[in-house]
């Protein structure tokens, strides 16, 4: 029980000090998990993070669940995950409650008009970075264009585009590996 509580608190701390998630959490994780608690080596942590990246869901949550599970089984995974999301729950709800009350003020509206532009810039930068890393060959470009056109023309859930592209990736690699043998 005590160790579950420690897991919860440790990941709540990680959640408190990670802004934006993803790679931003690696240095914090390293300090809490490797240096302070010795729950994993640095190499293991990078492995867990890699698994967190290629499983569905939020990377930070996946990595927390994995480390918690390795420590204390299923309950450990749950404790670590709840710890990770706890700060978000509290902070975001407080902020939303405040925003709701002030959002009609002209000052706040001007601020958010500026903020929206900044967010657009940040998203554009993310997309440019993703374009560079995710499209590595012609087929990647074809998949990108097909997904883009499908998304524009049809009102379908992203779920189907994601499933179709994953199946296509497997099919293509399978055919190529069969042909190469």
């Amino acid at each position: 029980m005590k160790e579950l509580w420690t897991l919860f608190l440790t990941f709540a701390r990680v959640g408190c000090f990670t802004f934006g998630g993803g790679y931003a959490m690696l240095p914090v994780l390293q300090k809490e998990i490797v240096d302070k608690n010795g729950w994993a080596t640095e190499e293991e942590l990078v492995d867990y993070f890699a698994i967190g990246q290629c499983t569905p869901g939020v990377i930070a949550v996946n990595t927390s669940t994995f480390i918690g599970y390795k420590r204390k089984g299923i309950l450990g995974g749950i404790a670590a995950t709840l710890g990770m999301v706890f700060p978000s729950l509290v902070i975001i709800m407080l902020i939303s409650a405040v925003l709701k009350n002030f959002s009609s003020l002209p000052l706040v509206q001007y601020a958010f008009s500026g903020i929206r532009v900044a967010v657009a810039v940040l998203v554009v930068n993310v997309v440019i970075k993703m374009l560079k890393t995710s499209i590595i060959d012609y087929l990647g470009a074809v998949i990108f264009i097909i997904a883009l056109i499908t998304g524009i023309l049809f009102d379908i859930s992203p779920i189907y585009i994601i499933i179709a592209s994953a199946l296509f990736g497997i099919l293509f690699k399978k055919i190529r590996s069969v042909n190469n043998v």
Binding site: S134, F144, I145, I152, S165
Partner: peptide
């Protein structure tokens, strides 16, 4: 790995549209 080979460009397209 193969699934992600197909997924990454598609996810980029989805995020580009949302962007």
């Amino acid at each position: 790995q193969s699934a992600f080979y197909g997924l990454r460009p598609a996810v980029t397209a989805l995020i580009a549209l949302a962007g």
